Simulated assay, not measured.
Amino acid sequence: MDWITMGIGLPLTLTVIVAIFLQVKKDQGAPVYVINLLFSDLIQFCARITGLFRPRIASGIIDFGLMASVGFMVCISLERYLVIAKPLWYRFRRNIKTYVVVCVVVWTLPLSVLLTVYLTREYDTAKIFYQTIVPSLALLPFPLFIFFLVGTIKALSAALSVPAEEKRRIVAIQVVVLLIYSLLFLPIISKLLSKEFKLIHYLLFLAGIYLSPLADPTLYLLTRKSFLDTFLASLCSCKASDNQEMSSKDTESTTAPHTETV
C-alpha cells in the first residue's frame, strides 16, 4: 500500500503543485490554503519513505502532516463560507499578512502538540495525551465543517448576484471537504479513541491514512472553473439526452394506438 499510494499520489501532488504555480505566473489568484494542504500531503509521502528506515520518526511526521491537513481543510471551508456570507469583510481582510499569519498558526499548532507528546518523559501521560487529547482536538473541525456548509447554502440562497455555476462550485467544495474529513479522518480519530482492537476500525484507520493524501488534489480541481464547468456540462448533456430519449419513447407509445386504429 505504501508503494502504490506513493506511486500514484506523489506524482499527482507534484503535478497539481506545479499547475498551481503556473496559474500564479499567469496573474491568476493563488489558492494559498490548497497549496499548503498539498505540501502537508508531500510531508506525509516523504514520511512514508523515511519509514522504511526510521519507523518511529516517520510515525510522528505522518501525524504532523495529517493534523496540518485537517487545519488547512478548515481554512478552505472557512474561506468559501466568508466569500459568500461576509463578502465585504472578507474583501478587506484578504491580504498577504492574513494568509501568512493563518498558515503559520496552522503549521505551528500540530507541531507543538506532537512535540509535547514526544517530549513527555512519562509513558502513561504521553499515551493518554496521544490517545485522548489529540483525537479530541481533531474532532473539533467536524461541527465547523457542518456549520460552514449549512451557512454557505443559506447565504447562497439569498445571494442573487452570484451566478448559478459559481454557486454549484462553492457548494461542491464544501461538500467534498466534509466528505473527505468524514470518510477518511473520522475513522482515524475513532481508532485512536477506541481502546479495544477491532478489525473494521483498524482497516478503516489504514484506509484513511493511505487515501487522505490522494483525495486532497480534488479540492484544487474544484477551484478551477474550467474543470467543474466541463463536468457539470457533461452531466447536463447526459441528463438532456436521457430526457430526450424518454420523451421520444413516450411519443412513440402514445402514437402507437392511433396508428393501429387507423
Rank of each mutant, 00 (worst) to 15 (best):
P135D: 09
I17C: 15
P141F: 05
R93N: 15
L88E: 11
V134N: 08
I133D: 01
W107G: 07
C75A: 15
I43D: 03
P141H: 04
P55W: 07
T116D: 11
K86G: 05
V74R: 08
P31W: 01
M73E: 14
K26D: 11
R80K: 13
R93P: 06
S77K: 10
Y130V: 09
I61N: 00
D41L: 05
C103A: 15
A30R: 14
V70D: 03
Q23C: 14
R56W: 03
P87G: 06
L109P: 08
K26W: 00
M67N: 06
T132S: 02
T116N: 11
M73I: 08
R48D: 08
T50Q: 08
V32R: 11
R80V: 06
L78H: 11
L82M: 11
W89S: 14
A30P: 03
P135Y: 03
V18W: 02
G29T: 14
L88P: 06
G29F: 02
V113W: 07
A19P: 05
T125L: 09
R56A: 14
P143I: 08
V18M: 09
V34E: 11
F92I: 14
L111H: 03
K26I: 08
T125R: 07
P55H: 12
Y81Q: 06
K26T: 13
L119C: 08
